[in-house]
């Protein structure tokens, strides 16, 4: 059955234009709706198996998912681009990632960062990533995925885009996918860190309450597909 909506649309138009909206002095700012759940978006979702990967780190060593997660309670995967202001926010201007690592690496949680930027794009290149790993004292490997294959397999959209994976069979299962925290600005850190909350739940053997949020940050600098 079809319902026609043209008539109601007229009233909506006014609302959209804010013409009749003088009753309030508050401005509907774009900061509203921070940290909302994402549903139905493309990409991997909690409950999905985590695609396996085998990539080289900044020292040229091959690192695969199976060896990272083996014997651990969880693996945190961070999509990374050292040139992105949102990555700078959490690695340089604040200690979000360093704090996470300090707290959870001692509790059988492994960490890895993946850079899916294509050659010639912002944040790409072994030397740059090696330099920033040392400058930001990142204690976990940064893996190079310049073809973007693994990023696309995960549906990684932004830097950072976070995944928390728990061991399942020979691989891993995603229990959290989305933003690092609930402040989507380029400067401030949120008061809720979704990854920390997910890890707390995993370590207690509970299910993750907020298992999916909309990630925020720079676009992953994928190359064009051939």
């Amino acid at each position: 059955m079809k319902r026609n909506l043209l008539i109601t649309a007229a009233a909506l138009l006014l609302a959209a234009a804010g013409v009749a909206a003088f009753s309030t002095s508050a401005i509907a700012g774009p900061g509203e709706g921070k940290g909302k759940m994402s549903e139905g978006t493309k990409g991997l979702q909690p409950g999905d198996m985590a695609p396996a990967f085998s990539l080289t780190d900044t020292d040229g060593k091959t690192v695969d998912m199976a060896s990272l997660i083996k014997g651990k309670k969880a693996l945190v995967v961070e999509w990374f681009n050292p040139g992105c202001p949102f990555v700078v926010k959490h690695h340089e201007k604040n200690t979000t990632f360093a704090d996470l690592y300090a707290k959870y690496s001692t509790q059988d949680v492994a960490f890895v960062a993946i850079n899916s930027g294509a050659p010639g794009k912002e944040g790409h290149g072994l030397e740059l990533n090696k330099k920033m790993k040392s400058e930001w004292k990142i204690a976990y490997p940064i893996l190079m995925d310049e073809s973007g294959e693994i990023g696309r397999a995960y549906g990684a959209k932004t830097t950072p885009h976070m995944f928390v994976i728990v061991p399942e069979g020979n691989g891993g299962k995603i229990v959290y996918a989305g933003a690092i925290d609930n402040d989507r600005s380029a400067a401030k850190v949120g008061d809720t860190n979704y990854v920390a909350k997910a890890l707390d739940a995993v370590l207690k053997g509970e299910s993750v309450e907020t298992a999916s949020t909309n990630p925020y940050g720079c676009s992953v600098k994928y190359g064009k597909k051939n």
């Binding site: 234009a17 804010g18 909206a21 003088f22 309030t24 002095s25 401005i27 509907a28 700012g29 493309k42 294509a118 973007g148 990023g151 696309r152 990684a156 959209k157 676009s219 992953v220 600098k221 994928y222 190359g223 064009k224 597909k225």
Partner: peptide, 19 residues
Amino acid sequence: TVGKIIWPAPDRYVLPGDL
């Protein structure tokens, strides 16, 4: 009395990676 912000329509922009 300050009214609501009126945003103009944007452009849709597709980036590599289907973003």
